[in-house]
Design a protein around this nucleic acid. Structure first.
Lengths: 214, 214
DNA sequence: CCAACTAGTGGATGCTGTCCACATTTTAGT
DNA sequence: ACTAAAATGTGGACAGCATCCACTAGTTGG
């Protein structure tokens, strides 16, 4: 009953171009938010968009391709939150104290996203075979998590907090530490820990990373 | 044609007690090994055991409970490999150099398991809601990963390598770092990295953890 | 203005998890 | 030892899922 078209005429192709594809990704994002990657079920997404299951196959080769699009969107969401967290820190570029705070902000944003949006976080890292990490530096897109981390570490090096020697490749152990904590406390064996313990672990981890920045 | 029972008599309940349950877990373990937690499909497991799908429901409330059993088995496998890795290191308890080597062996075993058995590794950490971490210290079971890590860190503290102050709670950041690396390079965005880069990352991470052990 | 293309529909297939009713074997109580 | 009860497996069914094929109505480029 969406319009009073003469009976018998089916409503087709009346949506603006690309609306279905975008709608499917948006629907998938909601499903992922509520239940993680496994909850991104094609037939449910098309139901939300108000279209027949097969319509999805005009935009995605299969469910995995839809999931890949949803995953990329979730990753962009994470990147946006990280960028927002960093932007909130005041202080000129190159100021050692400010640079340290920015590194902390990145990690905190990462962990907060994982805790507040476990479904999206899991989905962002559930790339369904193939579909490599989207190339960064696109048009106006937020930088990907790793790039943002690199930028802050470069600043720490410029500020003299981190020697060039130690700077080299340190983004990986740091990313691993934060990501590992997010995964273990989010979906792993350390989930359902009281909030107090959680934030204690965060402090411990922050101090741990601090050791390596001499 | 497993036996020449008179025709018409169906073969039922002739397996030794508990054989079906054990077989289902074993079958699920193979499925998990090949394709991770999502590949643990009930109907396929019962097919391997040679029994009708419903028989599984005499032993597990639903697929998730089967998956939980498989996950626990995978975790035990990981623990066993870690224990084997540690046991291979010679040196008396309390010897600083030996203690360090044991810590390294634990981490290496963890990462090696994740790399060699990605399906089992993912399954070990894919606990399907509820079903808390199996209580440790069972009868003759290997200690769980966290317990093994704690034991080695305690040894490092006893050996004077790690001050009591730094020892407190450090198992979590260390576990996070190693687990994060395993996840990122195994199933995450850093997968399909060349082996050389992989081992470089491992060295970087090892050095990174070393910083915190002063 | 028409032909080719795009994006939707309808219907079908095989797989999955799960439920109910039933049969048989094993165990336990007397 | 005999029987009642509990365990364990079977058969058949259902709904939901991803996906395929054939078809059609709008859209668009020549």
């Amino acid at each position: 009953m969406t319009s009073d078209r003469p009976a018998g005429e089916t409503a087709r192709a009346r949506r603006p171009r690309g609306a279905v594809r975008g709608g499917l990704v948006a629907a998938g994002l909601e499903l992922a938010r509520a239940g993680g990657p496994d909850a991104v079920v094609l037939r449910e997404a098309v139901r939300m968009v108000g279209v027949v299951p097969n319509a999805a196959y005009r935009h995605f080769a299969d469910r995995d391709e839809l999931l890949a699009a949803v995953s990329a969107a979730a990753m962009r969401e994470l990147a946006a939150r990280m960028a927002a967290g960093v932007a909130r820190v005041r202080g000129k570029y190159g100021d050692p104290a400010a640079a340290r705070r920015r590194l902390g902000a990145i990690g905190r944003a990462y962990l907060q996203f994982a805790a507040e949006e476990p479904g999206l976080f899991a989905t962002a890292f559930a790339l369904p075979r193939q579909h490599a990490y989207q190339a960064p530096g696109g048009t106006g897109q937020d930088l990907l998590p790793l790039d943002q981390l690199r930028a802050v570490l470069d600043e720490l090096a410029d500020a003299g907090v981190l020697s060039r020697q130690r700077r080299a490749g340190i983004e990986y152990p740091i990313w691993s530490t934060v990501h590992g904590l997010a995964v273990l406390t989010g979906q792993g064996p350390l989930r359902d820990l009281p909030d107090a313990t959680r934030s204690h672990l965060e402090k411990l981890t922050s101090a741990f990373i601090g050791e390596a920045l001499t």
